[in-house]
């Protein structure tokens, strides 16, 4: 299943490294990355594939949120369909 991972937090060294390691440990494959700094906030969107991940989508979401909290980051995963539905005809 394709999904969008959104990472937002105060910018510092190593955010991409820690988030990528986290995704790898969960078996989530990164397909595309877009990242910028908005108002001094690190903002990253990733298109990922969760089909090789062992846990269910709900478990992934909970796991990412928890791990993100430990890193002082907001990390959320959502199925990409919602963005397609709202922004594409």
């Amino acid at each position: 299943m394709k999904a969008i991972v959104t990472v937002v937090g105060r910018d510092r060294v190593g955010i991409i490294a820690s988030v990528s390691a986290l995704l790898a440990s969960l078996g989530i494959n990164i397909l595309d990355v877009s990242q910028t700094i908005l108002d001094s906030y690190f903002t990253m969107m990733m298109l990922v594939d969760t089909s090789a991940a062992a846990p269910s989508f709900s478990e992934l979401a909970a796991e990412l949120e928890k791990a993100g909290g430990e890193l002082s980051l907001s990390v959320r995963i959502q199925r990409e369909d919602i963005f397609d539905a709202m922004h594409k005809i």
């Binding site: 394709k2 969008i4 959104t6 595309d32 990355v33 877009s34 910028t36 903002t43 969107m45 990733m46 298109l47 959320r76 990409e80 919602i82 963005f83 397609d84 709202m86 922004h87």
Partner: peptide
Amino acid sequence: MLNINEILETN
């Protein structure tokens, strides 16, 4: 698919 603005707008 990775349009940051669209994703941020939705969220």
